[in-house]
Design a binder for these strands. Structure first.
Lengths: 364, 364
DNA sequence: CTGAAAGCGCTTACAG
DNA sequence: CTGAAAGCGCTTACAG
């Protein structure tokens, strides 16, 4: 990756002297300095617009011209070594190919770029050990900070960052006991809203399909569901809620869960899915079993479900403010990189997008 | 991002001398060297497993222990400056949040990680200028090479990389006149196969909806379509093919295209969509107009269309071998980083996944 | 078997 | 207004 470059040797007056072909060499400050006949220090000052008041206009002009002529590009690695700053942030999510995370990645990339930061990413697959490995790999590369969607049981990772004074912002999930920056959805509120929407539509026995995890975002979705029932004087039967293991075969687990929910002595009449992936598999199964939505079953889910636009009953869903989430996380991180600040903790509201899958019973 | 670290001063024998608290300092080779009482050179050799035969076992052991005790982590920036190698690759695609590209990103990340490479990404939004800017930003950061899905008219970007001797592999698209590494789908063959599938099902007038672009992957899809008609003695009417502008409102452009295809004196009886995005919008519109698939219209599309699993007529599609594509591109790139090689050009076959949307007319 | 020294390409405190 | 020099944290050719 070396530049083939013709470098000329110049005398003090800048007149071309000899043409010597130097292969595989990028042009450095030194090349500019020797072309113009000044020190590298001066070149550095001029190109970085520092001490502008103290440097002769004429010489500054000549330096800039020479830099352009030689097609100079600063070696950020060298600069980083000296300044101890890489203008790079590490993004660690569960899986970059998950639509939610890739949407976030895109937004973070754009926000970062505005401030001349670059993004390195890694997928930790919901595994704390993988995440720890990634953190260290990226720290070795001297990233200035992290945006992380932490895995279950990754408290130690987060504490590691705190101990080492590394700026970071958690996204999507956080650990209630650890005082740090995070930006997430108000999952409790969203879930409560979802279930109350089901109840308002005339449903009496809402079920829930979620993951079996201690991740607080999903725990809050469970609590929201429970409290919505309580508030509405509906006794919560624990058989109404099914929890899927992260590392199980999601498809068959969801199918089994639905079978069980519908085989109850008094079956549930509606389902809240805790994620689009769960909803996708659930919907396919429900549909293939000839169960009518919303007639037999009302359905609501977290996360946008574009896939259901083509379904006869497009799904009602809780839309996450991904744009705001990504922008805020990046903003908070970059501020913390510039200067250590007090932790900022932000819960954003979901938007309930009502569609056919929760049509009230009256109109079914 | 500095490590708070307690550093001790040791005498030549390695016995702890004084405890001085040094804040915000990462441990360096020098710290290990002074702890063990050897030169940094020796420490470097030991930790990199170089010249192992020449270094005393005992001293090597002490160095390794000290490194572990001090929690040493090598500063890759410093190493990169010296070795002129960053173990970083740049990934430039149109949009990282596009499922096709985020799937590729995930695979590339994994392949790269196996060889201790890290990935920086950027979205060029199908704009050659944005792509050029990204290339330079990442070059400044001394990436070792690139994987790029080049934008239309980005030949100059590619030539720039060639001139500067930067290793890279094009993915998804390439420029026929530029001799370089690339991995793409055999778009011509895939398109031919798709149209012949439509014809074999009894369709007589297949239409096509694609983008108006000179990108060769999409051009090949056009040629494949034309040649399939020719091979089967069907006269190609140019009104059968509609081309959407990249920067138009995709949804309304697709709707207009479908209106026109169906308003022909003798309307088309089937449609090949050149991408999942086109198909998604097309399908929604077709469905909302009460047109039956495959009864009134057979549909086939490029790219997986998970979304249509829930549709009453799941789409027949041409599946791209994303895994193979990502792995090959990464492999070729890393080989080229290690040593300059002759260009490798690979076309991979699509898999035709037949589903209900192209049920033969006999069975409609 | 081991170390002193130079150097990667920058920045910047300091001296003039 | 300008430059010489040190130093960021590594690697490695060279000398012993």
């Amino acid at each position: 990756m070396l530049f083939k470059k013709i470098r000329y040797i110049f005398d003090e007056k800048g007149a071309r002297n000899t043409g010597i072909i130097v292969m595989n060499k990028k042009v450095s400050l030194k090349d500019i300095a020797s072309k113009v006949g000044v020190s590298t220090a001066l070149v550095s000052y001029v190109l970085n617009n520092k001490k502008t008041d103290r440097i002769g206009k004429e010489i500054a002009g000549r330096i800039k011209i020479a830099a352009k002529e030689l097609n100079y590009r600063t070696n950020q690695i060298a600069k980083s070594l000296k300044t101890n700053k890489t203008f790079t942030i590490g993004l660690i999510v569960a899986d970059i190919s998950n639509p939610f995370f890739s949407a976030l990645a895109r937004i973070i990339e754009e926000e970062a770029d505005k401030k001349n930061y670059t993004v390195i990413f890694g997928s930790a697959e919901e595994q704390a050990e993988k995440s720890f490995k990634l953190i260290n790999t990226l720290l070795d590369r001297q990233v200035d900070g992290f945006i992380i969607a932490p895995a279950e049981n990754a408290e130690s990772n987060v504490n590691y960052l705190i101990q080492h004074d590394v700026p970071f912002v958690l996204i999507d999930r956080y650990f209630p006991l650890i005082e740090t920056n995070w930006v997430t959805l108000d999952n409790y509120k969203a879930s409560l809203m979802a279930v109350e929407h089901l109840l308002a539509g005339g449903n009496k026995r809402p079920g829930m399909i979620t993951y079996n995890t201690t991740l607080n975002n999903l725990r809050e979705r469970k609590t929201g569901y429970e409290n919505a029932l309580r508030k509405n004087n509906i006794h919560f039967e624990k058989d109404w809620r099914k929890e899927i293991l992260f590392d199980s075969n999601i498809k068959s687990s969801v199918e089994k869960a639905i079978d069980e929910l519908l085989a109850l002595p008094v079956p549930i009449d509606s389902i809240l899915f805790a994620s689009n992936i769960l909803a996708f598999h659930g919907l396919k199964y429900i549909h293939s079993n000839g169960i009518k939505i919303p007639g037999d079953l009302s359905i609501i889910t977290f996360d946008e479900m574009e896939a259901s636009d083509l379904f006869y009953a497009p799904l009602t869903y809780l839309e996450q403010p991904v744009l705001e989430m990504g922008q805020l996380a990046t903003k908070i991180l970059l501020e913390n990189i510039d200067m250590k600040k007090d932790p900022v903790q932000i819960k954003l509201d979901a938007t309930l997008v009502v569609r056919k899958s929760t049509l009230p019973i009256l109109f079914k």
